[in-house]
């Protein structure tokens, strides 16, 4: 695997791709907040939100099911909320007897649980749409222009740049470990957890030192090009009429969603 597999951006020239990144970031946040605010069991609103997402997928040229297919990342966390299924409030709809436990699923619990999962699942899709249609450096710029402190956006920009370099280093380290441990798999596995942890810890320590030394060289390269403690960047973005129209249309959408959700 090469670390390019981390790239989430899909190049394109759709309407969605061309919306100003600041507008896209704000809209993504607004849609997710709206989504989280919808009450339990607001199925028509959830459905409408999903339809809108499918259309946006299509419009951005990603294909109808793009975000859907990538949206299952948040599902494992649903385990954390699974207990609400067995809420004693509401009427029992299903009762399962497992060994000595008597599990009762109530209608209230079912709706509550399903709503939590659906909210989360829709929110993930909205976020996926953002990163699939916006270059990550543009998202970082957007946050900078939205007054996120410069030190954070600068560090995030560095993180993004060196993420790929360091992940490649990790993959090389892991491959080297595999190559070595394969030869001695029989005897070494007896080394147990502590031995494995020590090997992994040494790898992390080694990576730390390499990264530390790399940051020295980067600092030199920055100095050589006139860095004096302040990072300067150009603002490559300008609002267009279409951006304002998008903002307006989305606000209306959010109002409609909230209204439908509360009918």
């Amino acid at each position: 695997m090469h670390s390019d597999a981390f790239d989430r951006y899909h190049h394109g020239h759709s309407l969605i791709h061309h919306i100003d990144p600041r507008v896209k970031v704000i809209l993504t946040l607004a849609l997710i907040v709206s989504n989280v605010m919808l009450p339990d069991g607001a199925w028509p609103a959830f459905t409408l939100m999903w339809l809108v997402l499918l259309i946006l997928n299509r419009v951005s040229g990603l294909g109808f099911w793009f975000t859907f297919a990538r949206s299952f990342i948040a599902l494992p966390f649903a385990l954390a909320a699974i207990t609400v299924l067995f809420s004693p409030q509401g009427n029992s709809v299903l009762s399962i007897k497992i060994l000595m436990w008597n599990l009762m699923i109530s209608d209230y619990g079912l709706i509550h649980f399903a709503s939590i999962v659906v909210r989360s699942w829709l929110s993930v899709q909205i976020a996926i749409l953002l990163v699939a249609t916006t270059q990550f450096p543009d998202i970082v710029h957007a946050f900078k222009h939205l007054h996120v402190p410069a030190i954070l956006t600068t560090i995030i920009a560095f993180l993004y740049r060196y993420l790929f370099v360091l992940v490649d280093e990790v993959l090389r380290l892991l491959r080297a470990r595999e190559a070595r441990s394969a030869a001695a798999s029989g005897s070494r596995s007896a080394g147990g957890v502590l031995w494995h942890a020590k090997v992994a810890g040494n790898m992390a320590g080694q990576l730390f030192l390499r990264s530390y030394e790399r940051s020295d060289r980067i600092y030199n390269a920055m100095l050589a090009r006139g860095y004096q403690g302040q990072m300067h960047t150009l603002n490559p973005h300008h609002y267009h009429l279409s951006d304002w129209l998008t903002l307006g249309a989305s606000s209306i959408l959010i109002i409609i969603l909230q209204w439908i959700g509360r009918l």
């Binding site: 060196y162 060289r217 090009r225």
Partner: peptide, 23 residues
């Protein structure tokens, strides 16, 4: 510098080439 990954510390080519003039 020898290692271009140290020399190119910005996410995009444009930002990197602009770094010197900007500073």
């Amino acid at each position: 510098f020898q290692n271009p990954d140290d020399q190119l510390f910005s996410p995009t080519v444009f930002e990197d080439v602009a770094f010197g003039p900007l500073h």
